[in-house]
Structures are given as C-alpha cells and as structure tokens.
C-alpha cells in the first residue's frame, strides 16, 4: 500500500510539470499582454515593467526561469496586484475551501439520505420525489439555481442575504452552499439509490431478514455498508469539482474566493495567478483522486494494489 501511494506520488510530478507547461504556453498565446491599457503606456514604462516582472526575455527564457522558480516553490508576482501570487491565493483559498467543504457536507447529507430512502421504498412516493429531485438537480446549472434561490428566499421571503460570505453566518452561507451542493447531491442520490437497489436484492439481506433482524438495522448495518463502495469512488472527483468549480457561485454571491480571482486574472492576463491557480487545482484533483483510490482499497478488502 505504501509503495503504491509512493508510486502514485512520483507519477504526479511529471503530470504537474506537463500541466504547467501546457498552461504556460496557452496563457502566453492569449492575445494581448498584461500591460495593455485603454490608454497606452509609454514604451519606457512598459520596458521597465517587463523587466521587473521577468517578461523581457524570449518565451523560452521566461519558461526556464519560471520552471526554476517553481522548483523553489516560488510562483512569482501578480502583475495587477503587485504582490506574490502565493499571497493572493492564500487570501482567497479559505473562503473557497469553506464553501467547497460545506457544499460537500450538504451534498453528502442530502444525497445519501435521498438515495437510501428512495432505494428502500422503491416506487413509493418518496422514491418518486427523490428521483425527481435527483434528475432536476443534475440538470439545472448552479447559477440558474442561484437565481431562483435568491429570488425566492432572499428577495421574496427575506430569509437570507443576496450577496456576501461570512463564515458562521447562516444568512450568507445557506444559499451559496445549496446552490453549489445541489448538483453533487443529485449525483450522489442517483448512485446511492441504484447501489441500494442492487444490494437489497442480495442473498445475505434475505438471510438477515430470515433470522429476524429489524429492517432498520438491515438497512443501516447490512445494506448501507456495502452500498457505499460505489459512492466512495465518486466522492473524490466531487470534492475536487466543488473546490475547483465554484467560479460562478463566487461571482454570483460576491464571495472573495480564489475562483473569482482566477476569472479576473484571465481577463487581465495576470500570468502568475493563472498559473498558480491551475497548478493548485491540478494538485488538488490529483491528490483527491489518490485519496479515493486508497479509501476504496480500505473499504473493499478484495482490492489490492
């Protein structure tokens, strides 16, 4: 197991290097430079700026010096904000991670309960509600959902604030979390339901029923445990997707997270932030995928690496 984890970590390095390289050349291929303004700057100023931010050499030189800095853990400076990229990211990351983790918890709670309930009471009214919510939740984009949530709960009923994010303040937290977590909740509910249906038809469930185990205990201890294995596989990508996919929600609710910083950075050709964010997100995705594979082996002893 340890050898497997180590091997995966070793493979991660060339992967991240490849992603960094592609991103580097892609973002330099974006038309326009970081110092393009409506009112053009004097050539001497541009020259000085480019020298300061290490943009005066050829593209290959820039690439090599970027790689060298990266190996030392230096992501460079943000042109727009004139401070280290790591500062900009570490400033916005808490909000993004808070939002992502809360939405993940919401998705787990809602998805698992909906999925288990509709699996246990297949074709009952609860099942139909569950399936409808699962399908609708998966089909409606999160910013469209945000629109309707804000219209009804914030503007019509006045229960929540329209924008803002303050950790611990439910008036500002509930709507973004629900809007972001609805899609994964629907996804988890679908998988849980299908998996429950399959597990509940197994022989050992019949055995448990035959020896008189209470239905509640059968569902909770016998069925759910095995039904969770397929759900486990999707949790990693879901968590990664939640943390790296909250641009729109951050934009809509004016949450000062890193997603919003990235959108602004692409518009402003702020190379350092684009690169830092891409690497951060790619690392997150790779690490979470590894975590899932490991947890999969822990949950299912038949799998050996």
């Amino acid at each position: 197991m340890t050898a497997y984890i180590l091997r995966r970590l070793v493979v991660m390095a060339p992967l991240l290097w490849a992603i960094a390289t592609i991103t580097f050349f892609l973002m330099h291929a974006v038309p326009g430079g970081p110092f393009d303004n409506e009112k053009p700057l004097p050539p001497a100023t541009v020259e000085a700026l480019e020298r300061k931010y290490n943009l005066d050499g050829s593209l290959t030189d820039q690439y090599l010096s970027f790689l060298g800095n990266l190996l030392q853990g230096d992501l460079g400076l943000s042109f727009r904000q004139d401070r280290p990229v790591s500062d900009v990211i570490s400033e916005g990351l808490p909000e993004t991670v808070q939002l992502g983790l809360c939405a993940f918890a919401f998705a787990l709670l809602v998805g698992l309960s909906l999925g288990v309930l509709s699996g246990v009471k297949q074709n009952g009214p609860l099942d139909y509600i569950g399936v409808f919510v699962a399908t609708a939740g998966a089909a409606v984009p999160n910013f469209v959902l945000s629109v309707f949530l804000v219209l009804f709960f914030a503007l019509h009923l006045g229960w929540f604030d329209v924008i803002g994010w303050e950790f611990g303040n439910p008036r500002q937290m509930v709507l973004p979390i629900v809007a972001l977590g609805m899609y994964p909740a629907a996804f988890i509910a679908r998988i849980t339901r299908a998996s429950m249906l399959e597990v509940l038809r197994q022989d050992y469930i019949r055995t448990a029923r035959a020896k008189g185990v209470q239905e509640f205990s059968i569902v909770l201890h016998h069925a759910m445990r095995n039904a969770m294995v397929p759900v486990l596989t999707v949790l990693g990508p879901i968590l990664a997707g939640l943390i790296t996919g909250s641009f729109v929600i951050e934009q809509y609710f004016a949450i000062p997270g890193v997603g919003r910083a990235f959108v602004e950075a692409v518009g402003a050709r702020d190379y350092g932030i684009i690169m830092g964010m891409t690497l951060l997100y790619a690392t997150l995705i790779a690490v979470l995928n590894l975590a899932v594979d490991v947890s999969y082996a822990v949950a299912n002893p038949r799998i050996r690496y």
Binding site: A18, L26, T244, V266, I274, T278
Partner: peptide
C-alpha cells in the same frame, strides 16, 4: 490522462481566452 487531470472549467476559460480577438 493529462487532459483528464486538467481542471475542466479553468481549461475552458483559458482556451476561450486564447481563441478570442483573432
């Protein structure tokens, strides 16, 4: 595998920016 590991939405935004103003 490489494309799979690339953060989707980041890549779409970046590709869109690369193709713009041509």
């Amino acid at each position: 595998d490489l494309m799979y590991a690339f953060p989707d939405l980041l890549a779409i935004i970046l590709m869109r920016a690369v193709l713009s103003q041509r």
